[in-house]
Design a protein around this nucleic acid. Sequence first.
DNA 1: GCCCTGAGTGTAAGCGCATACATCTGAGAA
DNA 2: TTCTCAGATGTATGCGCTTACACTCAGGGC
Lengths: 367, 367
Amino acid sequence: MAKASTVYDVAAHSGVSIATVSRVLRRPDDVRASTRERVLASVRELGYVPSAAARGLAASRTGVLGLYFPSLDAMEELDDAEFLPGPGAALVDLVVDMPDSGAVRPPNLYFDEVLRGSEFEAWRQGFALMVGVGRGSNPTDMVNDIAGRVDGMAILAQSVSDEVLEHVSRRIPVVLIAGPRRGDDFDHVSVSNTEGMKALTTHLIDGCGVTDFAYVAGPPDSPDDAERHAGFVAALRARGLDPRAVPVHRGEFSRLRGRAVADTLLAGRRMPRAVVCANDQMALGVLDVLGAHGVDVPGDVIVTGFDGIEAGRQAAPRLTTVRQPMVDLGRAAMRAILSRLENPEQPPISLRLPVKVLLRESSEGRR
Amino acid sequence: MAKASTVYDVAAHSGVSIATVSRVLRRPDDVRASTRERVLASVRELGYVPSAAARGLAASRTGVLGLYFPSLDAMEELDDAEFLPGPGAALVDLVVDMPDSGAVRPPNLYFDEVLRGSEFEAWRQGFALMVGVGRGSNPTDMVNDIAGRVDGMAILAQSVSDEVLEHVSRRIPVVLIAGPRRGDDFDHVSVSNTEGMKALTTHLIDGCGVTDFAYVAGPPDSPDDAERHAGFVAALRARGLDPRAVPVHRGEFSRLRGRAVADTLLAGRRMPRAVVCANDQMALGVLDVLGAHGVDVPGDVIVTGFDGIEAGRQAAPRLTTVRQPMVDLGRAAMRAILSRLENPEQPPISLRLPVKVLLRESSEGRR
DNA sequence: GCCCTGAGTGTAAGCGCATACATCTGAGAA
DNA sequence: TTCTCAGATGTATGCGCTTACACTCAGGGC
């Protein structure tokens, strides 16, 4: 790494001008074959790797797309504690792992899957992907930082103030992922939360004959939760049921919260026929407790979730849920950016991806 | 986005020189407070976001660290099929999800968790993270591309040829993640595969009285698999057992493969007392089949895995395994890069992270 | 034999920023 | 009052690359 070599070095080494070196790399066909070979040989010999910074400056595009997430629960666990083993540390630690030991780390599907989709689509379109997570005292500094490094970026909605959004969008295209639409000015991709929950609820009423519900909601500031609850209410109304008669248990989107709600329900007078939860984690918590108390699911009580996480497929009984296309969300976001890049004047994009209601044994079993 | 504004615009707008604008952003204390405010107001008003390309060029460092992965199974599924809904597409699709419908998508822990750790550590150190996955006809083109964009990068071992490795490492520090050590020239972080498998196997022999094994190995070209198998063999030897007497079933690291092996075992003369698998996916496949055939685990057969994925915790019975610190692997890789960046002349780093043997019900139950 | 043409290559001008160095200003010292 | 010096700001250069444009040098048509 003794001073990385540059076009000048390669040019000198192969006896051509820097323009020719550049051409060999960007438009090889414009250069005579013999010259090209000579230059490529120098590239190999000198270990030359073009500087993307210089290239980006000159071409005024970076070839990078950005993805920004707010801080995630799964990330918060990480801390400053030293994690590297000391000099004499054991290489193996043998422990009896009790069923309830350790916190259940919520595998953050949103992050993992949206990222996966984004990376894939960016790659397909010939872009690299830069990721950033907002943390610390000034989470949105990261947004600005990324904005300076990319040709366009996707931001998980609800995580950035309008002011910052407005600011960076003057430099690059910005697309919002999930959450409510932010004014009419930003491109936006999301999933059919409302429609999905409405379809599921309607199925419970029409297909399973449920008239007696409990609803387990997420935090009040979650736009996803609001949309899902709206779908639930709409389904009830459409069938002439009174939404106000349904008890709503509001809290955080966690498995523990689901357990707490189930305890409350069990302590109550009478169990509802169906417990509809605004996400899978909570539904799994409900299943944990009902299972432990010998309640028959779905015979006595139907339980449903939302998201379609893997753990729901592995639960017993398997959880009926609404699967969000999270990978596609990432892909669609990248596409939206590119579309905007190609055609800056087009009207704002607002894409709503379809969801899939997965009917499984927590609602469909013996009845 | 009508032409992003630059330092020049901000300078003109606030009546100062570009040097002052730059100072306001980089070293605010060197500028008089009143001037600073004026410049910051212009920054806000013009929606100015500094170009990282220009900054990188001028400062000859990018402030970005890179992470490169080879193509992953979980990624391969993604294809060019159109995924965006057509104009009249339904927003909801209601399906009865049968237990065996759909492929079991292996959540790629390696990717997700190493990435998580890398991003976190990069952020802590004030760097952004760029990710790339090798795919297509020339997977390692991506390595070169990333190398031109970052101050240092981590590469998942085994995924890049020595030639490419050598080439990019002349420009930036490169650290290899997992796999075998590559010569003595590269910095390298990995986990204690051998020691972990040896400890687990030793426990099975000493603690569970197992003398009769079957071993389910991964693909022949997997260095992880090789190390794990070496640990297994070492444990047998240390207790006077003959490794050659243990049937080894070699194949890919998948759940389906585990099921196939279990079928084979069941079809055989006699079941071994313990089935040791080189990863969790395969062990889960074995559990699937044994469970379906009413074989008592661990009463009749003990099953163990390796990796510590979440699904193993949720299996019934819960899977005994060796947990790799994947998040820490990512963090350690980023640290190694920075360490090398600060002190280019230090001797090669070779860090081996400890693993944790998790004894759960697939080996520990009633006996 | 001359001019035109196009392929191949070189020249030079930025791209937007950081920063060494020059310049200017005003307050305090003499 | 004049000089000094430090703080504040401006000037100018270069980071490594892309690319418009200029140039050279055949070969072909006249």
